[in-house]
């Protein structure tokens, strides 16, 4: 009776265990299936952003396995034939171990160095890009300047040969955006009365009281201290050939 009871306990325990493992097994598979999907999604989403880094990683890996690395070559002196001749089997084994260790070390060093260089490069580029993006005049800021001068410019509408009446004026501004100097550039023919009139209209625009102080972003002085205005009446003209 007692023996039978123990038997049944063992049997039930074994059944429970087998069931538990079976369920766990199923759950693991399920978990794997579930986890695979989000990983794939994450990978896809990351690919578009960090595609270059993944390539770089591949490149790094490739570099680490490329034998003719300039730094790895002179490192292992154990490769010299003399030592191989002198050494015994144990030593050979040690040397083999040393070789492996040295190779691994050199590989580690190279990868570390490469990583360092890459990080430095990235940091440098990041700094430059951040500097550039902060210094560069944005499209919105450009549009503000454009609109300001459009209100001051009386274009030669309806003139003959309107496509030849493009006028370029170079401005020099002080830090507050005041026009210090304005020069006509581009070498148009001032003997042509139409061009002369167009040039004078553009000059009047930059001397207009509403445009004497240009609406520029104060922090980006280096970007706009010199600017060129291209007064082009062709788009305004309804009579484009």
């Amino acid at each position: 009776m007692f023996f039978g009871f123990i038997k049944s306990i063992f049997f039930h325990i074994s059944v429970i265990f087998s069931l538990f493992f079976f369920v766990n097994f199923i759950n693991l598979n399920k978990n794997q299936i579930y986890t695979e999907i989000p990983i794939e999604i994450v990978e896809v989403s990351e690919e578009t952003i960090v595609k270059k880094t993944s390539k770089k990683r591949i490149e790094e890996k490739k570099q680490t396995f490329v034998p003719p690395q300039p730094k790895s070559k002179p490192k292992p002196p154990e490769f010299s034939e003399k030592k191989i001749v002198k050494s015994k089997v144990k030593k050979k084994e040690k040397i083999k171990e040393d070789r492996l260790a040295s190779i691994l070390k050199s590989i580690e060093n190279i990868s570390k160095n490469n990583k360092k260089i890459d990080l430095e490069d990235r940091k440098e580029t990041k700094n430059i890009v951040s500097k550039i993006s902060s210094d560069k005049v944005t499209i919105t800021e450009k549009d503000l300047i454009r609109r300001q001068f459009a209100s001051c410019w009386n274009p030669p509408s309806g003139s003959k040969n309107i496509d030849k009446l493009q006028v370029l004026i170079k401005l020099t501004l002080d830090q507050e955006g005041n026009v210090l100097d304005s020069k006509l550039i581009g070498g148009g023919n001032m003997n042509d009365p139409f061009y002369r009139s167009a040039a004078e209209r553009a000059m009047r625009a930059v001397r207009h009281p509403s445009c004497k102080k240009v609406k520029v972003p104060s922090k980006k002085y280096d970007s706009w201290k010199n600017m060129t205005l291209n007064f082009d009446p062709i788009i305004m003209q309804g009579l484009k050939k």
Binding site: R146, W153, K170, S223, M227, L229
Partner: peptide, 15 residues
């Protein structure tokens, strides 16, 4: 970046 800022004025005031 160092290239000079160029603004195209293609609209004007026809008053």
């Amino acid at each position: 970046v160092n290239a000079e800022l160029v603004i195209d004025i293609t609209e004007g005031n026809i008053d």
